[in-house]
Design a binder for these strands. Sequence first.
DNA 1: TATGAATGAGCCTTCATTCAT
DNA 2: AATGAATGAAGGCTCATTCAT
Lengths: 195, 195, 195, 195
Amino acid sequence: MREQQLLDAAVVVFSKRGYHSASVDEIADTAGISKPMVYEYVGTKEELFVAVLHREGARLIGAIAAASGDDLSPDEQLWRGLRAFIGFVASHRDGWSVLYGQARGQEPFAAVLAQMRARMAEIVAGMLARSVAVAGLPVRAEELLTMGYALVGAAEALADWVVEHPDEEPDVTATRLMNVVWMGIGRLLRGETWR
Amino acid sequence: MREQQLLDAAVVVFSKRGYHSASVDEIADTAGISKPMVYEYVGTKEELFVAVLHREGARLIGAIAAASGDDLSPDEQLWRGLRAFIGFVASHRDGWSVLYGQARGQEPFAAVLAQMRARMAEIVAGMLARSVAVAGLPVRAEELLTMGYALVGAAEALADWVVEHPDEEPDVTATRLMNVVWMGIGRLLRGETWR
Amino acid sequence: MREQQLLDAAVVVFSKRGYHSASVDEIADTAGISKPMVYEYVGTKEELFVAVLHREGARLIGAIAAASGDDLSPDEQLWRGLRAFIGFVASHRDGWSVLYGQARGQEPFAAVLAQMRARMAEIVAGMLARSVAVAGLPVRAEELLTMGYALVGAAEALADWVVEHPDEEPDVTATRLMNVVWMGIGRLLRGETWR
Amino acid sequence: MREQQLLDAAVVVFSKRGYHSASVDEIADTAGISKPMVYEYVGTKEELFVAVLHREGARLIGAIAAASGDDLSPDEQLWRGLRAFIGFVASHRDGWSVLYGQARGQEPFAAVLAQMRARMAEIVAGMLARSVAVAGLPVRAEELLTMGYALVGAAEALADWVVEHPDEEPDVTATRLMNVVWMGIGRLLRGETWR
DNA sequence: TATGAATGAGCCTTCATTCAT
DNA sequence: AATGAATGAAGGCTCATTCAT
């Protein structure tokens, strides 16, 4: 599809220049089509960026979902999801940069991103909920969601870290995070708290 | 000082509009001074933004440093630091938005922010290192730093969460994070790992 | 070509306002196109001025070259060149004003003008050299070049004079100059000097 | 006088930067006074430039007048005047640059300069008129004035030449010009013409 | 279907110029 | 008598967006 080539070009240019400095001209050139075609296919520059956001976001979430199959134990799911997340970022630098570098805090894109992040946090919270259910302990859903957000935030930070240190092994990084998180959660699920 | 009023106005406008869409005109108006004064005081729009970044960043780090006194136990330090971080964000929405919403991914500001984040990660790693030393266990500095980054990332995510849910109690949120983290770290320090 | 209309307009406006006071807006309006087109066609205001300079300069030199055919005697050549020069100025007031009024002393335009003037001085020196050769007298090339510059300067002054006195007949003015110059040169070529 | 220091500074800055690019700030700084003082002493930037023009112009004409004493033969007068002109330029580069580089073609300064040039041309025409009177020949005043302008123009061109070639001896240059001019005039005065 | 050509709108930045002290 | 501080006004340049072809 011609539109996919356009989005490909847009990801590259937005990532290289940033949303505002990227010119529709350069995107059209990179895509090998003329400027009016850009408007024909997706509309406004803003809409183009949103389209990019959606595609890249769907890919990221898709990668995570594909990795953490339903028939695994919760911890295995979480670990695979984390690995997929960080691995995806490591191999899609441009998309990641557009998603998190540009969209964050720049309305109306921030809303799109926030929604994606909420979905991921909910997925994580879901995994934790299954563990909780297994353990038969009463943990409030709200608390689980908070943990979900925290975990997603930690994963994002490590994703940035991996981007800045290309020689770090994504799997190692994912494991380090998993160690802290899962063991902490384990004790929590047993009813212990720090204070 | 007149310059402080200018930075105050800049924070508000940058936060509301974003770096690019913010016009120097509006900043000057908001500050109640004329546009040439903006250039007299801080120079370029870019320099103005950097000045804002530095002031807000210094305030954030200052608040954290002030909260986590040197003569406390590592966990108490970490907890207070977290609480200060999230509390600061909750009461300085605009500054936070400028720091993390705008600067991220928009060179040359991203570099300033990355440096700040690195400093915070190192501080956290330092706290963990003290615990490690007490426990007498061999943990690689690199691993501690990774944890530092992860923890800072988690705190950032929860800060965003708090900003989006103004009725959440910052202290409660900080405690939830602390629970997961510290207990996980505790087991790690005892030599256990997830896998 | 649209670019020629643009240069036409630029000559008019630069001549009327001077380089600095001329606004690209006014030039665009005069040319009947929009401002961005100006930048599309020639680039910067500075580049626009240089383009004007080159076109007008080429026209002036072209007129002189066309007038003083190669197969004439040196004095006839010089006379026709002078007449062409002054005649050109008389009928291209705006171009002349831009060339000599604006470019002079305003870097980086002065350099372009200086080069043009050097070329004209060399042409004149060449004509004199042919006379010298015919007369078989030893006159240093450097001295001829000095005369070339002097003659060009005199012609420029009379051109200004003609511009300021539109009822003067260009041909008469050119003849007056020729009288002084050629007769003086004639005696010089015969080895006489004033002192 | 404080005003003279101001003009001194103005000449330097106008010469270095050109009229438009010269900022009143820099002139005030160079003069060692504050900006409002500039306005106190001479008024507008434009008026300041005109003041500079008048002072430098007066100096140039004064130097010429002083050199060509009344009790000399016409040719000696002319020669000394030329030498003074070129010598003045060689030793007052800044003033010359302001006078001829900036003022020319930039209204309302061009008018001031034109007036000065007219005065010089008249002085030269006067010298020629005395020669004519001695020779007892009928030459129209208008023709003499034309020659005056031509001669001034030639002198200006050689002045520029001397400025660009600082190793040229001003006296030599003046003599070369004198040779052509005076011998040509001599024959004219004897009634001969080129055509 | 695809584009070359065109523009309206806007923003950063700089000064000449003047008060209030 | 002198100035630090302040501003109104203007201009170059860019770019998202759209006709006419």
